[in-house]
């Protein structure tokens, strides 16, 4: 393994979630995945296959417990890191449902975040310019920066805000969890262009998690993985996405016990 190329390695990952009624329930049952700098991977799969669990587990959401396996970034043990340390190490999760933080302005939030991830406060003059440019690229009104984080944002605004953060934080690995959901065609085009711009720099490995093939017409992955029942059940190139477009997930779901029914 070379250390020059950033790489996220997921090996035999098993993850459980605590339920109120049934105790812990295993969702991921041995996931293997490698994402290198500059690569774009799509993870596709039906609802309940464990796609979101995978993304939240990598980011370190406390609801999920890793029971087996490893996640490393450039050889460093990601699972041993706190949530904020993972982000500072270079992992970014664009959330499907970004959380409202009332009273905290977008500009304050972005600056706090960039300061933490970069290890020093960005110089004010260049920072303002940087944010302006990134916002313009996503066709966001400058007034947006003064609003409270995600409060009263439309679906499209929330997703653009997520991609704005990805742009500014320039992570080693970006996990985009259903970033295409809830977007109309215009918003999808703008968000996809934002993702493409980050990808074009070649510094970020992208893990695009999606239920539909729609976004893959804009952001073209080199690798497509199909997830079902908490495992990766098929892998291939862009042609696999085209097959899924036509045939759906039926052939993967049949015979696979849905994760939800396993205790």
């Amino acid at each position: 393994m070379t250390t020059a190329v950033s790489v996220l390695e997921i090996r035999n990952l098993h993850v459980s979630v605590d339920t109120d009624t049934e105790g812990p329930r295993e969702i991921l049952r041995g996931v293997d995945l490698t994402v290198r700098k500059g690569e774009t991977h799509a993870i596709m799969g039906p609802n309940g296959s464990g796609k979101s669990t995978l993304s939240y587990s990598i980011a370190g959401h406390p609801k999920y417990t890793v029971t087996e396996g490893t996640v490393t970034l450039d050889g460093e043990d990601v699972l041993a890191m706190s949530v904020d340390a993972r982000a500072r190490a270079g992992i970014f999760l664009a959330m499907q449902y970004p959380v409202e933080v009332p009273g905290v302005s977008v500009s304050n939030f972005l600056r706090s975040s960039a300061t933490a991830v970069r290890g020093e406060a960005p110089k004010l003059r260049t920072w303002v310019k940087e944010v302006k440019q990134a916002m313009a690229g996503l066709e966001m009104d400058p007034a947006f920066a003064e609003r409270s984080v995600n409060e009263g944002f439309s679906g499209g605004e929330k997703k653009r805000h997520e991609i704005l953060q990805m742009t500014l934080l320039a992570p080693k690995v970006a996990i985009l969890d259903e970033t295409d959901s809830g977007l109309d065609v215009d918003a999808l085009r703008i968000v996809s262009a934002g993702i493409e711009a980050v990808r074009a720099k070649g510094e970020t490995g992208i893990l695009l998690i999606t239920h539909y093939t729609r976004i893959l017409r804009y952001v073209k992955p080199e690798f497509v993985h199909v997830m079902a029942g908490g495992r990766i059940v098929d892998e291939g190139g862009p042609e696999l996405a085209a097959t899924l477009e036509d045939s759906g997930y039926d052939r993967y779901v049949k015979g696979v016990e849905p994760a939800a029914a396993v205790s």
């Binding site: 949530v83 409202e100 009332p102 933490a116």
Partner: peptide, 27 residues
């Protein structure tokens, strides 16, 4: 806790994230 997770997932340490949320609440 979800707001805390969101802020921390952007690299902001827990204590600073809490400060941001409480400041925001009183703003």
């Amino acid at each position: 806790d979800e707001a805390l997770f969101y802020l921390m997932s952007r690299g902001i340490p827990a204590d600073e994230a809490r400060r941001l949320v409480v400041r925001g609440f009183f703003a």
